[in-house]
Design a protein around this nucleic acid. Sequence first.
DNA 1: TGTACATCAGTGAACGCGCGTTCACTGATGTAC
DNA 2: TGTACATCAGTGAACGCGCGTTCACTGATGTAC
Lengths: 205, 205
Amino acid sequence: MPKRGYHHGNLRQALVDASLNLIEAKGPTGFTLSEAAREAGVTPAAVYRHFEGREDLIAEAAFQGYEIFGDLMEHAYGTGQPSDLAAFEATGRAYLAFARKYPGHYVAMFESGISIQRTPELNAAASRAMGVLEQAAVKLSQHIPADKRPPPQMFSAHIWAMSHGVVELFARGSPGTKSPFPPEDLLESGIGIYLRGLGLIAPDH
Amino acid sequence: MPKRGYHHGNLRQALVDASLNLIEAKGPTGFTLSEAAREAGVTPAAVYRHFEGREDLIAEAAFQGYEIFGDLMEHAYGTGQPSDLAAFEATGRAYLAFARKYPGHYVAMFESGISIQRTPELNAAASRAMGVLEQAAVKLSQHIPADKRPPPQMFSAHIWAMSHGVVELFARGSPGTKSPFPPEDLLESGIGIYLRGLGLIAPDH
DNA sequence: TGTACATCAGTGAACGCGCGTTCACTGATGTAC
DNA sequence: TGTACATCAGTGAACGCGCGTTCACTGATGTAC
């Protein structure tokens, strides 16, 4: 907690943090600029010193999310070496870990309706993050004989879809859709079965 | 188009339909009771003759969605016989077909924040629909040797997650996330690889 | 077939509310001399 | 070290808006006799 009083000290980031809390608690619908200002202890008008408006505030939250996400994915991929398989699986785990640890960011990124094309910066951050998964898929797919190898973009799209599905359906406090399995186990086993289907894991593993 | 004039004739359903159009066009956020009334050519107050309020209207839309969805799934499963595998794959296709054909319903069901526990009727409709997928998974998993068979609920959760992920990420006009593959192909190939991983499809298929 | 009347399904005006946004302002901070 | 002043980051009042909801009402429909 920096300064107190008339000048806030770090209002910009405080507003982003407040937005993330609200989005996490009430979904992207429940978020209002006024409430974010209130939570930061400030008049709604003050927001306009730092953001163009409501959309801009959400976009910043999403941007920060992609940055964190990208770092996490890169780190996971790096530490997942030496084998391409281990590295790939690590990125899958990192995806879910991110969604669990930063639910506000996740929602801002994927459910707020913010377009990735909004600014070049946002686009770049998103591309970097998703690029890690794609690269991991490319690397891994080279272990499949060329004639029975699916396109790597399809490969990573499958993994992304399953990961996203697990997050949305089973990793939220949401609508009665509780599964008897922890999301982490669900995703790990799902990816495992999928990779076995590609011949990347021995059938009897 | 039934009656005209003071009495609408079938306002209840007209309101549901208007809601579905709005949800489809603008997401669950963009939906307002007043706008639905306007689109149905009626005063907002008239809505209260048929629904308790905004939430109730969305819940009815979701309910109708689960009914349609359940019918589609049952029909797909039925016509997918004779083999358990073919029947299972048919339900997967039906899932995506439903999401594509009834996007408003899909959003009302899975993204509107409506709780499935809201009414016994809603709960029953949802259980029936999801039950088809679960049953298909149970049947199919009996073809796997008992000692290497994953729990059928896990099995169907995987398929559901991948299906939902494909819908959300690749079957919407949404945020820059266009894949170079049609969602149908993506889901079909993804499920195929997964089933191969379970040993339910021959590796060289 | 005609009339009286109950019921139903809508109207339209009104309400209080919180929203996003604007504006002229003022208190706090930093800097030049 | 002190003073004058520019800049910055907030305030608070005001706006117009559309929302969900309520209420007494009225026009249309259906039914009993």
